[in-house]
């Protein structure tokens, strides 16, 4: 099945059965996988922390509300200080990891382009060489005939 070009419109578009939908190209599916796995792994770490706060509050209250320093209990510290820092750290890490991935993917696509160019040049040179040798053999055979 030929792939349709994406146009931003709300005019009705042809639909296909999801089972018959062609696979995504390698590059896009790699992008989605990397982007999603980065986001998901950070989100999982974040959510474990987030839900652990009410969990300890309700299931381990003695530990949650035990004083750490001054009147600051473990739960106050986690909720009002660590959580705020964590929201920023997770988002910052995501941006950094994404930028690293973007650089890498850009480098990869540049390398791919370069490789394609080199192999194209090689094949052109080879083609030229072949043409030259065909021409040479043609000239040779012609000379022989003339002789």
């Amino acid at each position: 099945m030929e792939e349709k070009k994406y146009v931003m419109t709300d005019e009705p578009c042809e639909t296909v059965d999801i089972k018959k939908l062609p696979k995504l190209d390698k590059k896009t599916s790699y992008s989605i996988r990397t982007e999603l796995s980065t986001g998901l792994s950070l989100a999982i770490v974040y959510f474990i922390f987030i839900f652990s706060v009410p969990a300890i509050n309700w299931f381990k209250p003695d530990w949650a509300f035990a004083k750490m320093f001054g009147g600051m209990s473990t739960s106050w510290f986690l909720t009002t200080i660590v959580a705020m820092a964590m929201a920023f750290i997770i988002a910052y890490l995501h941006t950094k990891l994404y930028e690293r991935w973007e650089r890498k993917s850009l480098e990869m696509s540049r390398m791919e382009k370069k490789e394609n160019m080199v192999s194209e040049q090689k094949s052109q040179v080879k083609k030229k060489g072949e043409t030259a040798s065909v021409q040479a053999s043609f000239v040779e055979s012609k000379e022989e005939t003339l002789l």
Binding site: E14, I18, P22, L24
Partner: peptide, 13 residues
Amino acid sequence: GKVPADVNAFMRK
């Protein structure tokens, strides 16, 4: 089960 035929191109975008 009926998805837009251009969904792959959307994902690429």
